[in-house]
């Protein structure tokens, strides 16, 4: 029961991180703060994915000598969630790097980090 509650709490925390991140990305005006909000969003998604793989009373999904092959599929935590998280971390880092690089270039050009000024349309 406690584990189930922990999983639920974990999902709630993930949901909060996603909402805060999304809100920050949409409503904050500072580009750096937007990038930080993106990392929160990404962390929220990662937490949700890890929580998804939880199996009540489960074991680490590694077959060791002496392990029961028969019960392994039912007992082992789902491996795919953490697998996706690893990839998501790499993608998150790459996205952050690109966002920071573009923000730096635009900051040099406009001298401000305000999204409302930097991203203002210039096409006639």
């Amino acid at each position: 029961m406690i584990e189930l509650t922990l999983q639920l709490l974990s999902f709630i925390a993930a949901g909060l991180l996603v909402v805060i991140g999304l809100g920050g990305m949409l409503f904050l005006d500072n580009l750096i703060k937007k990038i930080i909000a993106f990392t929160l969003l990404s962390d929220g998604v990662n937490l949700a994915l890890v929580s998804l793989g939880y199996v009540e009373g489960g074991i680490v999904p590694i077959l060791e000598p002496g392990s029961s092959y028969l019960n392994f599929p039912n007992e082992a935590a789902l491996i795919f969630g953490p697998g996706i998280v690893l990839t998501n971390i790499v993608i998150g880092v790459s996205t952050t790097a690109i966002l920071i690089a573009l923000t730096m270039v635009l900051y040099r050009r406009y001298g401000t980090l305000k999204a409302s000024k930097v991203l203002k349309g210039e096409r006639k």
């Binding site: 990305m25 990404s42 996706i84 573009l102 270039v105 635009l106």
Partner: peptide, 27 residues
């Protein structure tokens, strides 16, 4: 050009949201 850098930044920000959505759909 500055217009292309702005377009790239906006596109990347939205890619972050859409990518997270796709990961959730996958999950």
């Amino acid at each position: 050009e500055s217009i292309s850098q702005k377009a790239a930044l906006k596109y990347t920000f939205f890619s972050a949201i859409s990518g997270a959505g796709l990961a959730i759909a996958l999950a």
